[in-house]
Design a protein around this nucleic acid. Sequence first.
DNA 1: CCTCATAGGCACCAAAAGGTGTGTACTTGC
DNA 2: GCAAGTACACACCTTTTGGTGCCTATGAGG
Lengths: 131, 131
Amino acid sequence: MAKRSKPEPSVFDETCSARHALELIAGKWPMLILSALAESPMRHGALMRRVGGVSQKMLTQTLRDLERNGLITRQDHQCVPPHVEYELSALGGTLAGALIELDRWAEHNFPQLDAARERFDAAQRRSKRRP
Amino acid sequence: MAKRSKPEPSVFDETCSARHALELIAGKWPMLILSALAESPMRHGALMRRVGGVSQKMLTQTLRDLERNGLITRQDHQCVPPHVEYELSALGGTLAGALIELDRWAEHNFPQLDAARERFDAAQRRSKRRP
DNA sequence: CCTCATAGGCACCAAAAGGTGTGTACTTGC
DNA sequence: GCAAGTACACACCTTTTGGTGCCTATGAGG
């Protein structure tokens, strides 16, 4: 019989490390930042401009987290004024494809989401009026 | 010349509907729930069991949000005790592939993330001791 | 001389996410 | 007929997330 010691890693198991991995990337800032870096390595300022709506604090925080987990690398040129560049690591690169697929999905299908939302909300309003 | 009225939809633009679309699915619960439903349609209770660590409240809330945006459909059989089934809509189905790819990425690469994190934290501790 | 850009740190506060417990409306068991 | 179990929704409260403003030091440009 098969060994019980290796319960296949699954993102559905909250105690599994695979879940932690998913949680690291499953967020709007990590996804956008990784996608942006997939296009090209960038500096802090360039990322701020590229990723609309991100605050300086969230950007720094997310970059640190991604660096800590080895998805991006940070090149500090140790000069003044500071010059620091971020880029996808090899590991991060293996993720880029799936991320970009999600971006594209959003960019292609948002009209259908908008329409569905409008329909749903209209139905809600109707049932509120007729309880 | 090209019309200025259509600035290509981009997830990087915070005012673009595509961004809203991405934010809807860029979260740990939406991702896990959609992945679970990609395997098979399920009832509330079955989803609770499948998606480890989700609370009943978050599950309901996320399901509502996904239903509102047309990614899943809710079949209420209107009987007692209640019997409600959730399944991916056609639109939701077009998303399943990318989601499952992310799940698999996490399940395959989490050891590298763990190792990188350990290395990073060790380096942090070293520089704390030598300031 | 004064301001801006560069890459952050730190503190404070508002907003949102999320967990726990309770309620409903019906079943089955005793 | 009353207790317990099920499938779901909802209200309350805590924790986390995220935004804003102010700070560093330096060199460039007005």
